[in-house]
C-alpha cells in the first residue's frame, strides 16, 4: 500500500499507520485532544495545532448521515450491516469510450490504494478528519477515456429499498445522485474511497465505493456507487432537487456563504466541545481555488 500525502498536508501532520492501527495509543491521543478542546480557544492555541488528527474510528463509523438507512446519525451503523456489497458491479455510461459494466474488482484492480487524511465538513456544521483509503478518481476517468462531449460526471448510488430501509420513506428522491464538473472530478484531491483506517470501508460509510471531495460539503460524497455517467450537461443532484434554495450543485465549503438558515462560518469537530473557524474550501484553497476563478461563489453555492 502506498501512503501518499494528501496535497499540502505536511508529513509531520500525517498520523503514521502504526499509530492509527494501534487503537490503545490512539484512544490515549484522542483523550488529549478532547482535553485540549475543553480549554478556552486562546489557551487551546497554546496547546499546539490539533488540526488533522484523525477522528476516532469508532466516531467515524457510528456518526453518519446516510438517509438510505434512516435520518438519525446512529441508524446507519445499526442498519447498514445487512447491505450486500459483494458481488458489486459499477456501470460506466455516457460520453466515454470504455462504457459497460465492471465488477468492483475489475474497476479497482489497476490502482494502488493510497491513504488520504482529509478534513470532512458536513453542511450541518460538524466536521471530522478521516484517514480514507482509496484511489484517484482522475486516474479511473483517464482509463475510461471520456469523449470531448464529457463535461460532467454523475454518480448514481444504490436504489434498493429491500436492503435500504430508509428508501421506503420519501424523505429524499431515490436513488441518491451526485455530480461533479469533469475538472473537479479529475482533480488530484478527488478520490473514490474503498476503506478507512486501513480497513475495508464499513457499510455505513459508503461501502464498497464512495466519492470523497474534501473541499466540498460531505453530502457531495455519494455512497455505494453503482453507476458513473459522463454527461454533456450538468447532472441533477439529490439535495439540490430536494431543497434547491439551500443546496446547490457546487456545495464548496465556504465560511463566507451561509446556508440560508444557519451560519457556515464555524464548525464543531465531532466529539469536541468548542467550535472552530471553518476554512475556505475546507482548507484546500491553495489547490482548488483556481477551479473557480471568476465564478460568483455566492450564487453558485
Amino acid at each position: 500500500m502506498l501512503i501518499r500525502r494528501g496535497g499540502d498536508i505536511p508529513a509531520s501532520q500525517i498520523t503514521p499507520e502504526s499509530v492509527y492501527l494501534n487503537r490503545r495509543a490512539f484512544v490515549a491521543a484522542a483523550g488529549g485532544v478532547a482535553l485540549g478542546a475543553l480549554l478556552p480557544p486562546r489557551l487551546r492555541a497554546l496547546a499546539g495545532p490539533d488540526d488533522l488528527k484523525p477522528t476516532p474510528y469508532e466516531t467515524i463509523t457510528t456518526y453518519n448521515n446516510y438517509y438510505e438507512f434512516g435520518t438519525s446519525k446512529e441508524s446507519p451503523a445499526k442498519l447498514a450491516g445487512r447491505l450486500k456489497t459483494s458481488p458489486w458491479t459499477v456501470e460506466v455510461a455516457g460520453a466515454a469510450k470504455r462504457t459497460g459494466r465492471y465488477s468492483y474488482e475489475d474497476l479497482v484492480r489497476p490502482f494502488t490504494m493510497q491513504v488520504r487524511i482529509y478534513r470532512h465538513r458536513c453542511v450541518e456544521g460538524w466536521s471530522m478528519v478521516v484517514p480514507w483509503m482509496g484511489f484517484s478518481l482522475g486516474d479511473l476517468i483517464r482509463r475510461l477515456e471520456p469523449t470531448s462531449k464529457a463535461k460532467f460526471v454523475q454518480f448514481t448510488t444504490l436504489d434498493d429499498p429491500a436492503q435500504m430501509p430508509g428508501q421506503r420513506s420519501d424523505i429524499l428522491p431515490w436513488p441518491y445522485v451526485e455530480g461533479l464538473r469533469l475538472d473537479e472530478a479529475m482533480h488530484p484531491l478527488t478520490i473514490l474511497a474503498t476503506g478507512l483506517y486501513g480497513k475495508p470501508l464499513p457499510n455505513q460509510n459508503g461501502a464498497p465505493l464512495r466519492l470523497v471531495v474534501p473541499w466540498k460539503y460531505g453530502f457531495k460524497g455519494g455512497k455505494a456507487i453503482v453507476r458513473i455517467t459522463f454527461m454533456e450537461t450538468q447532472p441533477m443532484t439529490t439535495w439540490n432537487m430536494a431543497v434547491p434554495s439551500e443546496y446547490g450543485f457546487y456545495a464548496n465549503v465556504n465560511p463566507e456563504v451561509d446556508h440560508p438558515r444557519w451560519s457556515q462560518a464555524r464548525e464543531r469537530p465531532v466529539g469536541e466541545f468548542f467550535k472552530r473557524d471553518t476554512l475556505m474550501f475546507n482548507g484546500y484553497a491553495d489547490q482548488v481555488a483556481s477551479l473557480y476563478t471568476g465564478m460568483n461563489l455566492r450564487t453558485n453555492y
Binding site: 478556552p40 480557544p41 451561509d258 438558515r261 451560519s263 464555524r266 464543531r268 466541545f273 468548542f274 467550535k275
Partner: peptide
C-alpha cells in the same frame, strides 16, 4: 460552546438566522 462568548458573533447570529 457554539459562540465562545463572542458578542459580535452572537449578535450576528441572532440577527441573521431566524
Amino acid at each position: 460552546f457554539d459562540q465562545s462568548l463572542s458578542l459580535a458573533m452572537i449578535r450576528k447570529d441572532i440577527m441573521e438566522h431566524p
